[in-house]
Nucleic acid binder design. Structure first.
Lengths: 352, 352
DNA sequence: CGCCGCACGTTATACGTAACACGTCCTGGC
DNA sequence: GCCAGGACGTGTTACGTATAACGTGCGGCG
């Protein structure tokens, strides 16, 4: 069915889809260069030293360039049994952290001729369609965040090398793990607040059942264990600005002495906490200090700018990709822990 | 929400990388089911009606399930000459807008058995490595944002169906285009400010050489053309909170009557504008109104929440994917324009 | 009765690449 | 003078799938 000819004229340029594509194959190159197809493969594969004369090798290369030859990836993958492609499984790309993880992983992959594909439609694709149906053929390995639990359960049975992100280093099923040193970040954040003189501190805890968030809570508790006059509470919340607003409101209006600092598990919560404080007529940081975690773009967008801990998301992705490639080369990658950075900005000050 | 069960031991499971993988092929299934490989392909391909008896078809299916058969994608792609995979080219995934575009595209693709891969390492992969070296074999089509200019130039020569996002509908080289109706959004935003009584308006223009931003400026100028007593200026800026802060500072401290409203090309600029206003001792929206564009998560995180226009990013991605699939089916997709939504929130009020 | 289709299957390719297993010279050492 | 071995290539095969082409019987229709 050709489309109805509309008034919008379309000369002879871009045809929709009916363009019969006469692909140029390695055999075409061979014919043009006057050699065999095998020679083309050798030359273009770079392993022709002592097998093909420099003269003919050059002929092959120029022929390939002139004809615009592009090796057929599908054929190569089939022949080699590898795809040089990794799958990155994350809960949601709209989370800035995971977008950064992807960026780092993709960059590290590209440096080694690898590609990265994402778990399709991270949030909310129905379980009806199994994205891993053909994973063994299309992928060489998997990098997964421990926060993508539903996606991980869909992976059961795949026998691919698996690098876990934000996950317990003792996880048995993982080929390798890579984590930012969140415990250290929380420790430094807490030390910062204690040094400023804060003692009544409320922890806005993200109620996420994931190892990284368990670590946050544990590190927070640990860091305050030795402080004798500390008055520590914890307020659970979902992982959003909205939830941070509500939790902070609850923490700041609770009967009894008001906390002078809110230590949030995430920048989103911290942004919400700032809003809650301001709506209660409290100034940040003069009346109440707020800290975040992650260093999202948001941390610099709100007023005041958030004191937070920068997680090396890109580096997490890159290290994960490197670990996977090591495993693919037959190596045994070590668990990786990456340093974090404390960023003291405008949302913390001594208590009133 | 099951607790993380660390006691659950998995002894002899995950070996690092040395697992020789004995893949099960369609021939194995055939052997197990007592039929030929062709029959397996027919049955599993769903086109066996009248070719294979229901009884044997069942045998094939159970054999496939028992053996854990997964079709080899590389072989299938080679045989079929299609990959059911599209490439999405965006400038940066860390931009929330494009993360949402990807999400929508991936979801629409998954609904039709398609996959979406991203231009590898969008920001800053060197030009040395050509990501499209084998695109014709690995991809069925391309969806590209007009903002990814450097990536697009790398695409020259590829003869794939191309759907352009945020791009001039008259673009000749595109198979199809899909755009949010930004002009309408800007018009409504401007009308909103005019209705509130604003006349001294400064446009914080993102200095991006892209069609979408040209449209923003043009629509803004057009909407204010008929207002006799309007005092309109324009302040160029890069696309960041920082740039918004500086541009707004310049606009608000310029000699002469101060603008009562700042109309920003993007929520990032708007957030920066709010910071600038507050640092100058001005209240938003009492002293100066600020509007954004995009409706990023940030718009709800800052205080006050931004009046802005929500761009249907997911829908843009999904429509792009649908257009590509129609083109792949031989159809001629129409240019798509998607409606936007004006969101009046806390950053706009009548002028002082 | 003969032959056409229909239901059921199988055999035999072909997709484009990488690499193994062979060949053929040519050069040099003894 | 002869053979070992390196340089230089080519023929051939296999990867696993989808499908065109090719048989079989068998019931019905002319």
């Amino acid at each position: 069915m050709t489309a109805h000819e509309t008034t919008h004229e379309q000369p002879a340029a871009a045809r929709p889809g009916a363009t019969a594509a006469p692909r140029v194959t390695s055999r075409d190159v061979a014919r043009a260069a006057g050699v065999s197809q095998a020679a083309v493969s050798l030359v273009l594969g770079g392993k022709w030293r002592g097998r093909v004369s420099p003269h003919k090798a050059d002929a092959v290369r120029t022929a390939a360039r002139d004809l615009g030859y592009r090796p057929n990836l599908a054929a190569r993958n089939l022949r080699m049994g590898r795809t040089r492609t990794a799958l990155l499984v994350v809960p949601a790309l709209t989370s800035e952290y995971f977008a950064r993880v992807y960026t780092g992983a993709a960059r590290a992959a590209a440096d080694h001729g690898f590609g990265v594909v994402l778990y399709p439609s991270p949030e909310g694709i129905g379980p009806a369609r199994d994205p891993f149906a053909s994973a063994r053929a299309a992928l060489d390995g998997v990098i997964a965040s421990s926060m993508a639990t539903d996606a991980l359960t869909a992976m059961r049975g795949e026998e691919l090398p698996l690098v876990m992100l934000d996950s317990d280093p003792d996880d048995a099923q993982a080929t390798a793990t890579v984590n930012p040193d969140i415990a250290d970040g929380v420790r430094r954040l807490t030390a910062h607040l204690l040094a400023l003189g804060h003692r009544r501190i409320t922890h806005l805890a993200a109620a996420i059942d994931s190892w990284t968030f368990h670590v946050r809570s544990a590190a927070f508790a640990e860091a305050l264990r030795g402080v004798p006059d500390a008055d520590v509470r914890s307020e659970p919340a979902a992982l959003s600005v909205e939830a941070g607003l509500h939790a902070a409101h609850a923490a700041l209006t609770r009967p009894g002495p008001r906390p002078t600092a809110l230590l949030c598990d995430d920048d989103l919560l911290a942004a919400g906490a700032c809003k809650a404080a301001r709506r209660l007529g409290l100034r940040v940081p003069e009346d109440v200090s707020v800290t975040g975690l992650d260093d999202l773009a948001l941390a610099m967008a709100v007023e005041p700018e958030l004191t937070t801990v920068r997680l090396p998301a890109e580096e997490v992705g890159a290290a994960g990709m490197r670990a996977l490639m090591t495993a693919l080369d037959g190596g045994a990658p070590e668990p990786v822990t990456l340093p974090v950075e404390l960023l003291v900005r405008g949302s913390t000050a001594p208590p009133p």
